[in-house]
Design a protein around this nucleic acid. Structure first.
Lengths: 274, 274
DNA sequence: TCGCGATGTGTGGCCGGACCACACCGCGAC
DNA sequence: GTCGCGGTGTGGTCCGGCCACACATCGCGA
């Protein structure tokens, strides 16, 4: 036996311990939950069994259950709450962006993923998204496709025009605008990755903005570019929308001097602005 | 005080507990490690302090440290090993794909991210990558750019020609081929996301392949398509390479009947906008 | 009868201590 | 010199406990 005599040892027919059953205990819990998710026994909004219950059911310690729950929480699969009532316990949510955000942020922190790569991927996803949405606008009606609803994005732009918005609020609204456009592309995974990218470098963006010599001027330019992007989308011009988005994003990162060398071509001069 | 009197309580100047210091203990550990990573005190290949040491340093319990370590492990930031020696303990690695894989897989399992969305994103990333690599080939030499090294990809194709490869091996090599092309694009984040996408739906692909009526024929077609993609890349033809990749991926998923409705617009053909 | 405080119950959060298997390291016997 | 064996430090696992929290219930007094 191993690690104290335990119910789990009853499963191992015979012999040594960890290397033999070759999965750590918390992975066993993860597997169980993933199965429940897959089989539909657990759906968004549902609740996991209580930690103590789950531990007893699986014959593992509560500590192992908690480790698994932490992982799921980090992935944006569940959310935990103390207390009692309908919202207490570990409820299944679906927030892929959360996991993306922390994961990417950590890898950026470990200096293995350059900020430039993040920006590059963001440009790729976002140009694709707006092009797609613009194309939906263009083809709407011709084949029964309902046109995408752009009022949300438009309203956000209205809020950004308020002169009282702080830099923080501005970026929050900016995220909302870009996010709503990407969401209209219909691909939830792309939207999640996008949100993750944004979140991962949010601090960089904020500190970069605070360094800008003339934020009001920059903000005004960004507002105008947003209008232009939205107009291109509303006009059903995929190519123009994509190009405007590309210029918008790359321009800002260049101005904020966040265009750190991409892992791509670190050798050729990728610091055009000086 | 709260949760038994503990060193940590000394930090809280006064008052209630969890909601007041509003971060869970393991997040405190995560923050510390992220700081160390960011500051370069912790680099790839380095080792975290022992769990007991870390717990003592931060004034938290070993359980909380372990929860944080589980999260980092799930993200592909660290890898843990028992025993002693240079490889023991929690060593910093950098495997973003691992976190992506499990994260995406879980969200697919929870029925919130359709397989079709995964495929769509894969097509987007991979067409971009091969187009980029092909463009690098095309412009190589003209401005001091060293041409990408395609021998690795070519060798993998050679291995796939062996008649003895099983379906499992075939898909492993297929992943290696696509992975090497994406890696040549130079964007490590794109490569990581790609690997994550592949891993997340690997089981689907495998079972889908086993269902195919005539696997040898399919395999032969896939091999030919790989050759075509590689030729287009080697020939410096971005557009052709991208189109071949798109057809290759979409064709396979359609044949294997894995092109489940995308969350996007299940009605129109999921053409990448344009 | 109605309102409201005290009490009960189930939840996650956290702790400390314990034991195990493992891998290495160095000492001592041969 | 070589071999064997115990010491040491590591993660892996478990147990039992206590706390704060939020809700549900009951009982008491107005």
């Amino acid at each position: 036996m191993c690690g104290r005599t335990t119910p789990r040892q009853a499963v191992a027919t015979a012999g040594r311990c960890p290397t033999l059953w070759l999965v750590r205990t918390h992975e066993l819990v993860l597997a169980r939950i993933e199965r429940d998710l897959s089989a539909g026994r657990l759906t968004v909004g549902g609740r996991l069994p209580a930690e103590r219950t789950l531990a007893a059911e699986l014959g593992v310690s509560r500590a192992s259950v908690r480790e698994a729950i932490r992982v799921l929480e980090a992935m944006g699969i569940i959310r935990t709450n103390v207390g009692s009532g309908p919202d207490a316990g570990a409820v299944v949510i679906d927030n892929p962006a959360a996991g993306m955000t922390s994961g990417i942020r950590l890898h950026v922190a470990s200096h293995h993923v350059p900020v430039g790569d993040v920006v590059q991927l963001r440009v790729l996803l976002e140009t694709w998204s707006v092009a797609r949405v613009a194309d939906l606008v263009r083809t709407a009606g011709t084949d029964g496709v309902t046109p995408p609803d752009l009022v949300g994005a438009s309203e956000v732009l209205g809020l950004m025009d308020e002169s009282s918005v702080t830099i923080q609020e501005f970026h929050r609204l900016d995220a909302a605008f870009h996010g709503s456009l990407v969401a209209l592309s219909g691909n939830v995974l792309v939207a999640a990755v996008m949100a993750g990218l944004r979140g991962a470098i949010h601090d960089y963006v904020l500190t970069g903005s605070l360094r800008l010599p003339d934020w009001p001027a920059t903000a005004a330019r960004l507002r105008a570019e947003h209008r232009g992007i939205l107009a291109a989308v509303e006009g059903g011009a995929p190519g123009e929308a994509a190009e405007r988005v590309r210029a918008h994003i790359e321009g800002f990162y260049r101005e904020a001097e966040l265009d750190g060398a991409t892992s791509a071509t670190a050798n050729d001069g990728n610091r055009p602005a000086g």
